[in-house]
Design a protein around this nucleic acid. Structure first.
Length: 111
DNA sequence: TCAATGACGTATC
DNA sequence: CGATACGCCATTG
């Protein structure tokens, strides 16, 4: 577990319920431009359930976990439980895309 | 070393 | 909307 992973997870933990963020967006907020693939690795490696990993989807709003894996269904369930509108495996981004407040951004910078 | 591999992103057709 | 092609980059064998 290196520093980048910690940073990534800390950013993910800021995503509020019924909102989603993209891998690229998380990478940017974590100060890791073009680090989208690292975000996916960090989430896959993470075992802490208190981190809302399910609120991270790809830039198209689609769940990126292979449908063959069990966590794919789990992610859908968790999102629906929060009231996130899902059309198939795609979320309504115009409604649920996370837009961090200025406060949140400043808080991140101080981390 | 080096090629292959992703829970990615963007551009093009 | 679906399919393909690249770029990207840490990790893996």
């Amino acid at each position: 577990m290196n520093k980048s992973y910690q940073k990534i997870l800390s950013v993910v933990s800021l995503i509020p319920p019924s909102c989603v963020a993209s891998y690229g967006q998380i990478a940017d907020l974590a100060g890791l431009p073009r680090g989208a693939r690292m975000v996916s690795k960090a989430l896959k490696a993470n075992r802490d359930d208190s981190i809302p990993w399910h609120r991270v989807v790809n830039s198209q709003g689609r769940i990126s976990i292979p449908a063959s894996e069990p966590s794919f269904r789990l992610q859908m369930s968790l999102l629906r439980e929060e009231g996130v509108e899902l059309k198939g495996s795609k979320v309504n981004l115009t409604k649920h895309h996370w837009q961090p407040s200025l406060d949140t951004l400043l808080f991140e910078l101080s981390f």
